Simulated assay, not measured.
Amino acid sequence: MAAPTTRVLAVLELLQAHGRMSGPALAARVGVDVRTLRRYMTTLEDLGIPITTERGRHGAYMLVAGFKLPPMMFTNDEAVALSVGMVAARGLGLAEGAPALESAHAKLARVMPERLKGQVGAITDTVKLEYLPTLSTPASNAALMTLIAAAQSRLRVHLGYLAPGGGKTERDFDPYGLAWRAGAWYAVGMCHLRQDLRSFRVDRVAGVQALEITFQRPQGFDPLAQLLRNIATLPHGRAIEVVLRTDLDTARRSFTPAIGLFEPVDNGVLLRSSASDSDMGWFARQLAGLGYDFDIVMPDILSTELAKLAVRLRALAEAGVNRVHMDESIHSPKQ
């Protein structure tokens, strides 16, 4: 659950933005039941916030007329940027952040002029982002919150982790940072069990506890870049080496970042990767789509798959040429 303070502030911002809201509507917006909402209202009154309650079937909560907290001011570009960011944040599988998003959205609506308010309000309807199915669960949300706090405070944690094939391991871990990729959150940092930089999918964390041990994060550490490097160097079967006849920037733009490691060499760029035999056909198709030459150093099976692909493409091309000639023959005027 998100901290009660976060939800109380979300209630306050919603009341300031809407003026009058029913208990069920307020409770639904912040993700609590009506009884819990009543406790939040008591908390606001204890803080000196003047709340008016309308009783009865169509009752509602309101702030006393004229009461306003000092608003936070944004420029037009800032307001639009924040609104687009909140649209994106809703797709990150972070259920704990929902009350904070509602509160931030209500703040924006409260301080905007009507023209800009309509523009920002339309963003939810007009800006759509494609999201991969999220792997987050209520348990992984709690682990994510703990790991984020530990990374910010630079505190070591004790981590329980469920391996993909089953079985649980325990380790101490320094969370240098977190990254989101392909529908999942990953914690990236130093694993003291393996004495190496490792990445752990948060939805597989089976328990995490902050320790009273601090760590130093490496200067300029990029958790997403390290995550992609870890994925690229995982052993997937046979080792692959291909010399790409191009420069480093072009080579990196030609593939997804997790395909492997790129190393400049005298005659181009060496791509190091790995794949199972069943995936060599896929790897051959990636190479076939390149707009520049390359040399396969290893393995031989990749060269074989590329040759099979060339035979298939040649046959398809010849079949297409034959159809064109046949159509021309059928539709040509007879002498």
Score class of each variant (00 low, 15 high):
Ala2Leu: 12
Ala3Val: 14
Leu9Cys: 03
Glu13Gln: 05
His18Leu: 11
Gly19Met: 08
Ala25Ile: 02
Ala25Ser: 10
Ala28Arg: 11
Val30Asn: 06
Val34Trp: 06
Arg35Glu: 05
Thr36Cys: 02
Tyr40Gly: 12
Ile49His: 04
Ile49Glu: 06
Thr53Val: 15
Thr53Phe: 13
Gly56Lys: 02
Met62Trp: 10
Leu63Val: 04
Pro70Trp: 00
Met73Glu: 06
Asn76Thr: 10
Glu78Ile: 03
Ala79Tyr: 00
Leu82Val: 03
Gly97Trp: 11
Gly97Cys: 12
Ala98Ile: 13
Pro99Gln: 08
Met112Cys: 14
Glu114Asp: 13
Arg115His: 07
Val120Thr: 13
Gly121Ile: 00
Ile123Pro: 00
Thr126Pro: 03
Ser136Cys: 04
Thr137Leu: 01
Ala139Met: 09
Asn141Met: 09
Ala142Ile: 12
Arg154Tyr: 02
Pro164Gly: 11
Gly165Ser: 15
Phe173Met: 14
Gly177Ile: 03
Tyr186His: 01
His192Asn: 12
Gln195Trp: 07
Asp203Gly: 03
Arg204Asn: 13
Arg217Phe: 03
Pro218Ser: 00
Gln219Ser: 08
Phe221Gln: 03
Leu224Val: 06
Arg229Gln: 15
Ile231Asn: 02
Ile240Tyr: 00
Glu241His: 10
Val242Leu: 04
Thr246Leu: 02
Arg252Thr: 01
Arg252Gln: 14
Thr256Ile: 10
Leu261Glu: 15
Glu263Arg: 11
Pro264Met: 15
Pro264Ser: 14
Gly281Ser: 07
Arg285Trp: 09
Leu290Arg: 01
Leu290His: 01
Gly291Lys: 11
Phe294Asn: 07
Phe294Val: 04
Val297Cys: 08
Pro299Gln: 00
Thr304Trp: 07
Glu305Lys: 09
Glu305Leu: 01
Leu306Gln: 03
Asp327His: 08
